[in-house]
């Protein structure tokens, strides 16, 4: 083996480490707890859930589609949802956005209704998912979460965490508005 080749062989551990270091560096700036949804590109699962205000009225997947919309997962036990809620109301005051609210495993129907009465109701339809059935099918792992659904009922994006002005401007808003162009 000539000496240059030999040196190259002995350099491989260093080169391998440098490659690894690059990944570690980028890893520092991302949140490892953030998960991609497995449902991107798939239709919203079938469901049959009661209305939050009216237990006798049930909604099915037929309410999904027809136009781009958001499905917002929330609960009164979730402190972040409180902040998100006021943002959603602000957003709706100026823009016309179709949001379905999915109340996720809340303490009681009354608690959720009180919350909406006190803080305002940004949702066109309110689903009451007491046992978390639809949430499980959607792969929800915490509240709040927001799904962006296109007019064919296909999930195009999921955001985990609260919606706020920045998230809306940079992430969720662009996806939502792009669905109108198609």
């Amino acid at each position: 083996m000539n000496s240059k080749l030999r040196l190259l062989v002995f350099l491989t551990p260093m080169l391998l480490f440098i490659g690894l270091g690059g990944f570690l560096l980028t890893g520092l700036f991302s949140d490892p707890t953030e998960l991609d949804s497995a449902l991107i590109g798939k239709p919203v699962p079938n469901f049959e859930l009661p209305d939050l205000y009216n237990p006798d009225r049930t909604h099915t997947q037929s309410i999904i589609g027809g136009k781009p919309m958001l499905i917002n997962v929330w609960a009164t036990w979730c402190p972040t949802c409180y902040q998100e809620h006021s943002f959603l109301n602000e957003l709706l005051a100026t823009k016309d956005i179709y949001i379905i609210g999915l109340n996720y495993k809340d303490d009681s129907r009354a608690a959720a209704m009180n919350w909406l009465q006190d803080l305002g109701d940004p949702y066109q339809i309110n689903l009451f998912d007491f046992s978390g059935l639809l949430a499980l099918d959607l792969g929800v792992y915490g509240a709040p979460e927001t799904f962006v659904v296109d007019s064919k009922g296909i999930i195009r994006y999921r955001h985990v965490g609260d919606l706020n002005a920045r998230v809306w401007r940079e992430k969720v808003g662009p996806v939502y508005y792009s669905l109108f162009d198609q």
């Binding site: 030999r6 040196l7 002995f10 551990p13 270091g21 570690l24 560096l25």
Partner: peptide
């Protein structure tokens, strides 16, 4: 994280470079 990464990179790269030069 950034500090530790910088430090460990310096230590490891320097020692592996020294290794390549001498051990070869």
């Amino acid at each position: 994280g950034l500090f530790l990464l910088a430090f460990l990179t310096v230590v490891i790269v320097a020692s592996l470079l020294l290794y390549a030069l001498r051990a070869s």
